[in-house]
Amino acid sequence: MIEPASLVIADRAGPPLTAGLVEPPLRTGAKERPRRIVVIGEFNSGKTTLVNALLGSPVLPTSFTKHTAYPTVVGFAAKPALRAELIGRRRVAVPWSAIDEAPAPHVRRLHVGMPIERLKALRAVDTPGFGLGDEEDEARTLMACRGAATVIWCTPAMQAWKASELRTWLALPRTVRRRGVLAVTFMDALPSSGDAGRLLARLYADAGPHFRRIVTFSAQGFLAAPAGELA
């Protein structure tokens, strides 16, 4: 039986949120590198909000109508920086407004550097959502999952775990799925705590076998992150 790890965030000054998400190194003696946590899921499932919560700071802009355009890697840097990785791996500095713009075909992903202490231990990757019908986007997202220490699939509590999510998840390579965590987001939208119990009971039965663990996440206080606050 998988135990739920609660990720309910009361305020931004809370403890780091990676507890229980980042697994210990697979091999002892492996080189210490920041562990990659890739957050995926269907659109508007709260991926960006979850990434911000992991960082403890509203680094990335969240919106209901503007979807995340590129896989966005957030890692440590001495001072804030935004670079676009182009096709062919070349990286160029771009203005902060680029994070919110319509996707350009020659950009592969974005790299955000932030002077946030916990980024020395982890690297968080936000991704464009599945389910908008853009297969190129989805292929890019799947690429971003490679080599991740943990892959978090976000599913919104009010419409959790649909067949399309199951299908997309099962289409991922087994190696990726072995590192899978199901995050039930927008838990605060549930009308009552009884509902939460019933929802989780179903998710354990239906989705449980496909994930290493199931966590819940409530994003109060993180929803209204303005674009480029740190710029």
Binding site: F43, N44, G131, L132, G133, Q159, S164, F186
Partner: peptide
């Protein structure tokens, strides 16, 4: 459709 995830590929 739910306002939270409106008009997914499946809906279309």
């Amino acid at each position: 459709v739910s306002a939270l995830q409106p008009l997914s590929a499946g809906d279309v």
